[in-house]
């Protein structure tokens, strides 16, 4: 059971949106995590420096928040095998599909890209179906 957190989730969303807008305003780029992670893997693209810097910011912020005493809820209700399989499948999917929740779901929808709207609808539906199958058909087997 997780608590419904409307204020935190809406507020967090506002900050994510603000980050996406700021990156476009200052650097002219989409805040899509798939492309940002991809940029620091070989073959390195010429954008790797800002991407590495963005990643450093994204990782260090939660470190600082926790160091400042902020509690951040975190619970992984799946097995290590599920994390590994899910990670590999996610990596393949976002690379082939050219984006994930941040790139398609926020930045793409925000500029009314038809591709991103289709991509977002697709990965959401498959997320719902996968969780339904794992939890209610397979009985939470993985």
């Amino acid at each position: 059971m997780t608590q419904f957190t409307p204020i935190l989730s809406l507020g967090g969303g506002l900050l994510i949106g603000l980050a996406a807008v700021a990156l476009m305003y200052f650097w002219g780029r989409i805040a899509g995590m798939t492309a940002i992670i991809g940029g620091i893997l070989p073959p390195f693209d010429r954008d790797w420096a800002w991407k590495a810097t963005f990643l450093a910011g994204a990782i260090s912020a939660p470190v600082l928040l926790q160091a400042a005493g902020q509690q951040i809820e975190y619970d992984v209700p799946v097995s290590t095998a599920a994390l590994i399989i899910g990670g590999i499948v996610t990596g393949i999917g976002v690379t082939i599909g050219s984006g994930c929740t941040s790139g398609h779901g926020i930045c793409g929808i925000a500029r009314f890209s038809k591709r991103s709207i289709v991509a977002t609808a697709t990965f959401m539906v498959f997320g719902f179906v996968t969780v339904y199958l794992i939890r209610h058909v397979l009985g939470g087997a993985i």
Partner: peptide, 17 residues
């Protein structure tokens, strides 16, 4: 690709971002 990502997201509960 997006369908594949949705499956992975449903398995592990993490998206890359």
């Amino acid at each position: 690709g997006s369908a594949t990502f949705g499956i992975g997201w449903g398995i592990a509960g993490f998206c890359p971002g």
